[in-house]
Simulated assay, not measured.
Amino acid sequence: MDASGMKKEVSLEFLYLGGNFITAIPPELAKLPSLRYLVLCDNKIQSIPPQLAQLHSLRSLSLHNNLLTYLPREILNLVHLDELSLRGNPLVVRFVRDLTYNPPSLQELAGRTVKTRNIPYTPSDLPESLVRYLSLASNCPNPKCGGVYFDSCVRQIKFVDFCGKYRLPLMHYLCSPECSSPFSSASQSSTSQSESDSEDEASVAAHRMQKVLLG
């Protein structure tokens, strides 16, 4: 591709990929910084790559009539997104309940102890690989937990309130199964759900996601 072709690709603002039997969204789409309208409707897409959160100019995302059961938490980083079409996806009527959890390794348990108890160490005390490993700790999103995780975490669907009208299922990761009680049924009260929402996600600004099309 010549220089002019690369410039056109980078400056692309509208991309229509609807009705193409696409099963996976290529993460390379994240390399289109000027993209404002992305249409992926009427495909066979089962998940959204978190790299799409790098499309900071995106204003409209059409995902209706696919096979989505959840959305990645990273979609909250699309600060200019004001239209999200999700109708015709399984996530509208159900969500994932049976998700697996692999017990942490001895290395992870030791790393969690170092991080949660703030055990002091200097880079010269440990092999470089362990120092790098400790730097990769992720904080558990449960505000009542305060724990961390590395490779072993609990994948769980959580409904997040958007503008007080829509509750969208987002994937989030907990450090252990004890961090949150499992979803009991669809009849779970909104009060209980609200209590389980982490502070950063429950307070999505009212001007965000004004047009979430579910039906």
Rank of each mutant, 00 (worst) to 15 (best):
P49G: 07
T69Q: 13
S62F: 15
A186Y: 13
C163Q: 12
F183G: 02
L15H: 03
P141S: 07
S135E: 15
A206T: 12
N139V: 06
V212W: 00
Q46K: 15
A30E: 14
L52I: 15
V160L: 04
A24P: 00
L170S: 00
R117S: 09
L55Q: 06
Q46G: 14
L213W: 00
I119L: 13
E128T: 11
L17P: 01
R208V: 07
L68V: 04
G88K: 04
C145D: 11
T69W: 11
Y166W: 12
V204R: 01
L168T: 09
S198F: 11
T100V: 09
Y149M: 04
V114Q: 04
P104C: 06
L91H: 03
R59C: 09
V92Q: 03
A202W: 00
V204T: 13
E108G: 01
V160Y: 02
A24N: 11
P143E: 14
L17Q: 04
N142A: 12
S192K: 11
F162H: 13
H207I: 13
K8V: 12
C175H: 11
R208P: 02
Q188A: 12
E9L: 14
N102G: 00
D151L: 05
V10I: 15
L15M: 07
P90T: 07
A205G: 05
L109T: 11
L29Q: 02
I48N: 01
N20Y: 08
Y121L: 01
E128D: 13
A206Y: 10
L55N: 05
V92I: 15
I75C: 11
L86N: 03
E195D: 08
L86F: 05
I119Q: 05
V212P: 00
I157C: 14
N142P: 02
K31A: 14
P103Q: 07
T113V: 10
S135G: 09
G215L: 10
V154Q: 12
L68P: 00
T23N: 09
R155I: 02
N65A: 05
V148R: 00
L84M: 11
Y101A: 00
L63A: 03
S194R: 08
K44C: 14
L214W: 00
P177G: 03
G164Y: 10
Q46I: 03
K44I: 07
G111M: 05
K158R: 13
L106D: 14
P141D: 10
C153S: 10
